[in-house]
Simulated assay, not measured.
Amino acid sequence: MTSIDQPASHGESHRHGVLFVFAAGVLWSTVGLGIRLIEEASVWQILLYRSVSMSLFLYVVIRVRSGESPFAQARRIGGPAVVAGLSLVAAYSGGIFAIQNTSVANAMLLFATAPFMAAVLGWLVLREPVRPATWIAIAVAIGGIGIMVADKSGGVVLAGSLAALGSAFGFAVFTVALRWGRTGEMLPAVFLSGIFAIIITASICLILGQSLVLTWNDGGVAMGMGLFQVGAGLILYTLGSRSLPAAELALLSLAEVLLGPVWVWLFLGETASINTLIGGAVLLMAIAGNAISGKRRKPPPITSP
């Protein structure tokens, strides 16, 4: 590994950052495949098991990384950590429901609207300025969403599309809550979201009379998602985002959106409708255009400690 005293260290750091963030996107992109491999479990059962493994994993990682309890870190952040944690529970729930009720391509593309929602929320709540280019990109993105949601084919269900947009809104609230708390550290808030999710989903399962014991397949897939797809993805993203500007992070995040539908097509033969492809292309152009137009501005990513 290159020494920090050598000139190549900055380039090396940037390359590692790109690799880590791209790898995080690849892991996150498997969410659709994971949900499709679930045979019987409901949204709440999947989220319960996924949250258990994610929380245990993040507890160990945060403890080793900082020598401090994640509860203590979340307490220090205060109210914003609670808001961020609860918003992630809503995002997770909407995301799983969306993938169960619409095509993976449709859901993943709609998830990608979260940065635009965060920009508008930050403007409304925190009075953060929004660049003219971002407003244009938001308008274009809304056009793309309109094309996708107007799809009446069998693979696209309106309820699933609305749940995907609700999930994106939850992620946007999470992002704004971190800015509100003036913290760049996302892991304690994500850990807190896992604890909240365990309590909420276990309660809902009991109220609805759903079993807390899943089959080996469903329990294993759900816990594997919590460990690898969410937990490991977050660690890689947190490490990689330190050396990358926000615009580059936005572009690399497209790996998650583009690869998600590829996995279910390769392994399960699931395809996307024409409306999803056309609307998705418009949406991706809006995201990429906004990221490229902001490349000269290099604000620190929100995940920097």
Rank of each mutant, 00 (worst) to 15 (best):
A272M: 08
S273W: 01
L124G: 01
W44C: 00
I147Y: 08
S42Q: 07
Q100G: 04
V149L: 15
S293Q: 07
V82L: 13
V257H: 09
I147Q: 07
L158A: 13
V60L: 15
G154C: 06
S243F: 09
P70T: 04
T238S: 12
A141Y: 03
V83W: 03
G260R: 05
F267R: 03
N106H: 13
A84K: 00
A159M: 13
A222E: 06
I195A: 15
R127H: 13
S304G: 15
V21T: 13
G79F: 14
A23N: 00
Q210C: 10
A250R: 02
D218A: 13
M223P: 06
Y49E: 03
I138D: 03
I99P: 00
N290K: 04
A90C: 10
S193T: 05
L268H: 05
G181N: 11
L236E: 03
T215K: 12
E12Y: 14
I195E: 14
L268F: 09
S193L: 06
F97V: 02
F111Y: 14
P299T: 02
S161D: 15
F174I: 01
R50A: 05
G25S: 06
S273F: 10
G194D: 05
I35E: 09
I99S: 10
I287G: 11
M117R: 00
V89I: 07
L283W: 05
A107V: 07
V26C: 07
F171L: 13
L178E: 01
F71N: 02
G233R: 03
A177Y: 02
L58H: 03
G25W: 04
V190Y: 04
V61L: 12
N275G: 15
I138Q: 01
A81F: 08
I198K: 12
G166I: 11
G224W: 09
I302S: 13
A24M: 04
M108K: 05
T102M: 04
P300E: 08
R50G: 00
A247V: 02
S304W: 12
M54I: 03
G11T: 10
W123S: 14
V21F: 13
V230S: 13
